[in-house]
Design a protein around this nucleic acid. Structure first.
Lengths: 294, 294
DNA sequence: CGGTAAGTTGAAAAATCTCAATCACGGTGG
DNA sequence: CCACCGTGATTGAGATTTTTCAACTTACCG
């Protein structure tokens, strides 16, 4: 099974190869991560068994338990003690499914809840008045969506599913309440927001100081690192986004992204078949990112 | 007094001209902002009078009162009721002076406190392993420094004073304690973190989708907007940073920044005398930012 | 008043973008 | 089952933007 990239992934794992000097060895790869996370479909069938729902649609309103979620090590509950973990269960009230291409929320929507990606894959996108778009991130399982909305009580970006996805709904006022009660949760939440800021700074470094090849290499390393944290192969992946979306994220045109993929293939760094990518020389990519002028 | 840009300024005022569609009219310019904030020197003399310190050096350890600070409408206490405001006074324990060119903290330093700029001007900067630098922001009076450090208990960027500055020290564990007690403070703090995320997204939009002229125009509009919120002229300013620092922030080389300033001057948009800038045609700048292809 | 850091300007090189043609693939309907 | 369609991906060639390198000017500090 070469290209094993099911629809899962994890929480705010910074631009490890970028923020580099500013952080420890990027948190020991989570070897302890429970059984490699199963695919979206597999998860669904487990759910079906356990909770005996009659139809997919009902799934959305099911009671959800962080305490028994296999993403808990990668999501908001990270670091919570068993007992506090169970208190989260009363907070995360429901799930919501979002079909590929649909938006979880749009810029301007009133803010009610944060969302934790449970399965699937999202992009977030900001737009300027004149219609310029910028993809600000790609979110996998365990990662939080909606943090930007806290500042104005409105979402400031669109979150669009890049494949059929499921999110856990985290009512924000409940989160604030609970985090006043439980120091651990407060601390977790603050760390998550702060991590988002650090991640954004890494992206600024990328956009502000790297050339095309370096950007794409950094992007791929970041993706595989996050996938690996979720139990996937560090060397084979299926891109969930188009060249244009990658380009928007990296501040490049889609043709430049495409050309750079081709160049990497010529150089023996990657095997590229449309969206199927295999990394043949990870160190080579890493050198590209780290040795600016070499 | 053409170039009246003393050493003050305010809190996380997004890239208003950028985040555009994603936010309301950018919060009504704070017309209510108490008396235009006084200059660094003026503030010092007020302090001298009130608290009767014998020497500048002692100033750092003086008890500080948010409740009587004229930046309270722009800083962490924003929106706090009078009574809660006074509770902040027990949290903000001290001040610290940072000379021009010195660092308030460095990447890697253990995290103890957040800092609110009281007077002066800072830049924050991240570095990658291979020595690439990226200026991630410029901070004026009322803005918070150190939010990135929460995620790892270490600072992840350098904060360097671009002129002699003073900050209020906010011990982070005290802030967490207090924000468990006071809903208002919790809410303020979360909004501030979120606003930083929104600001960063605006910078990504700038770096990812604008060309040199648009970036510089957006930068200038953002600066003047923040200065105006602090009671300064919206049309005349003195840059606190070098062309190189502007370039780093905007993802451009210093020569490109310089050339673009010259072009703006030729076009009658600005009057540029080294770091003294006068905006002659604000609408022109605004059009540059908003009409991508025009 | 000299030395140094910062800023400006020119010309050529390099990177990226634009426009255009073509290819690949997944889905659909005959 | 297969041809066709549409979206996404690739590739080429020329245009444009930005960078690089270098010379020169200006301002500030002691």
């Amino acid at each position: 099974m070469p290209f094993d990239t099911p629809s899962d992934a994890s929480l705010a794992p910074l631009w490890a190869p970028l923020a580099a000097s500013t952080q420890p060895p990027a948190r020991p790869a989570r070897a302890s991560l429970t059984p490699p996370i199963v695919s979206q479909d597999a998860q669904r069938s487990i759910m079906d068994l356990k909770e005996k729902p009659t139809r997919m649609l009902k799934l959305d309103s099911l009671k959800v338990a962080c305490s028994s979620c296999n993403l808990r090590e990668l999501c908001l509950p990270v670091g919570l003690s068993r007992s506090n973990l169970e208190k989260l269960d009363q907070m995360v009230a429901s799930r919501r499914s979002v079909k590929r291409g649909e938006a979880l929320f749009h810029a301007g929507d009133p803010f009610q809840s944060l969302y934790a990606v449970r399965t699937g894959f999202f992009k977030t996108r900001v737009s300027s008045e004149d219609g310029r778009d910028q993809v600000t991130g790609f979110q996998m399982a365990g990662e939080l969506l909606g943090l930007d909305a806290i500042s104005q009580d409105r979402h400031t970006c669109d979150a669009v599913a890049l494949e059929d996805s499921q999110v856990c709904v985290i009512p924000y006022h409940r989160l604030e309440e609970l985090s006043r009660e439980f120091t651990e949760l407060q601390s977790s939440f603050h760390k998550i927001m702060s991590r988002e800021i650090v991640r954004d700074h890494g992206v600024m470094l990328l956009l502000g100081s790297m050339r095309a090849e370096e950007r794409l290499a950094a992007f791929l390393l970041n993706l595989t690192q996050r996938l690996q944290a979720r139990g996937f192969s560090p060397s084979a992946l299926i891109l969930r986004m188009t060249r244009e979306e990658i380009g928007s994220y990296l501040g490049l045109k889609l043709e430049t992204v495409s050309r750079t993929f081709s160049k990497f293939q010529e150089d023996g760094l990657l095997e590229v078949k449309q969206r199927q990518i295999r990394i043949l020389n990870e160190d080579g990519l890493r050198r590209l990112v780290n040795n600016s002028t070499c």
